[in-house]
């Protein structure tokens, strides 16, 4: 086992879809990592492969080549059974809160399933369920309601609660605020930051929104067409981007931040 300073690392990760002539390489030899208790922001435009990284990390897309290391242990070589235990240590929250919750299960059942995937008994785990709902600032009575009874922001918070109820060490958040209004997005971002501190979570935060990534991340990695073009501490990358693509990306954001605004 190789000791790595990173809680989670990907090394030379290549992901391709299809076979033979129709094969399409979506990620080309991407290496990056995140230290325990920190947040890595992944930015890029559509087609950059940022969602593919998320899905490769949690094992939905198989890696063609390269390694995915959790605490130095390679996940790509694991057998099905070993993978089962590892998988619960890394959880994914995805973009669309309307697709990520089963419309036939109450919020309580969804969280109970995260606690106990076999039985998913909301009554037995009522106390745990309520605690997680309160963690994401939802009322305990939310447990008995179905997804369609919640707003988009509330659904996204239920999705976060469900992922956290698994007790993961790493949370992969894939565009989780893209579908939300600005004021609701602020709530979800604040919640994540609070949880990251109180639970010492390690996070991979994926977004096309550079301002959001800057707000939540320690380090940022910039993806362009399946390749990593720049990575570094948020402050450095945003202040003095080195790669021309990063510069272009930052210059494109419509913004009017002024110094006097802070005053």
């Amino acid at each position: 086992m190789i000791s790595s300073p990173h809680k989670l690392a990907v090394e030379e990760l290549t992901v391709a879809f299809g076979h033979g002539r129709r094969a399409r390489t979506v990620l080309r030899g991407v290496s990056t990592g995140v230290r325990a208790g920190q947040t890595l922001g992944l930015v890029g435009e559509s087609g950059s492969g940022k969602s593919t990284i998320a899905k490769a990390i949690v094992g939905v897309h198989p890696a063609r080549a390269g390694r995915i290391l959790l605490d130095g242990e390679d996940l790509t070589g694991l057998r099905r059974r070993e993978l089962g235990a590892v998988r619960r240590r890394v959880q994914l929250v995805s973009q669309d809160p309307y697709a990520s919750l089963n419309p036939c299960m109450t919020a309580g059942e969804a969280i109970a399933e995260a606690v106990d995937p076999v039985r998913a008994d909301a009554r037995k785990h009522a106390v745990t369920v309520e605690r997680w709902l309160e963690t994401v600032a939802l009322d305990g009575s939310a447990a008995g309601r179905y997804p369609h009874e919640f707003s988009g922001g509330q659904r996204q918070r239920i999705a976060v609660a469900r992922a956290l109820a698994v007790g993961p060490e790493v949370l992969v958040a894939d565009e989780i605020t893209s579908a939300l209004d600005a004021s609701v997005q602020a709530e979800v971002l604040n919640l994540l930051e609070e949880l990251r501190r109180s639970l010492t979570l390690t996070m991979v935060f994926i977004s096309h929104d550079l301002a959001v990534v800057r707000h939540v991340s320690d380090e940022v990695a910039v993806l362009c067409q399946g390749e990593l073009v720049e990575q570094g501490p948020v402050r450095d990358v945003y202040r003095s981007p080195r790669h021309p693509y990063t510069r272009r990306l930052l210059a494109s954001v419509p913004t009017f931040d002024k110094k006097e605004e802070a005053a």
Binding site: V58, G59, V60, G84, A85, R87, R88, V90, Q91, L92, S94, D96, A99, S100, L101, N102, P103, C104, M105, E113, A114, P117, V118, A120, A159, R162, A163, V166
Partner: peptide, 28 residues
């Protein structure tokens, strides 16, 4: 292909339970 089925797999829900809990109710 919906996200909640992927989520259930990631949480380690056994395949049979995924079928009974997530798939069948939604095709009912």
């Amino acid at each position: 292909q919906r996200d909640f089925v992927t989520q259930a797999r990631l949480m380690g829900v056994p395949p049979y339970r995924v079928l009974v809990r997530h798939l069948l109710p939604n095709v009912a």
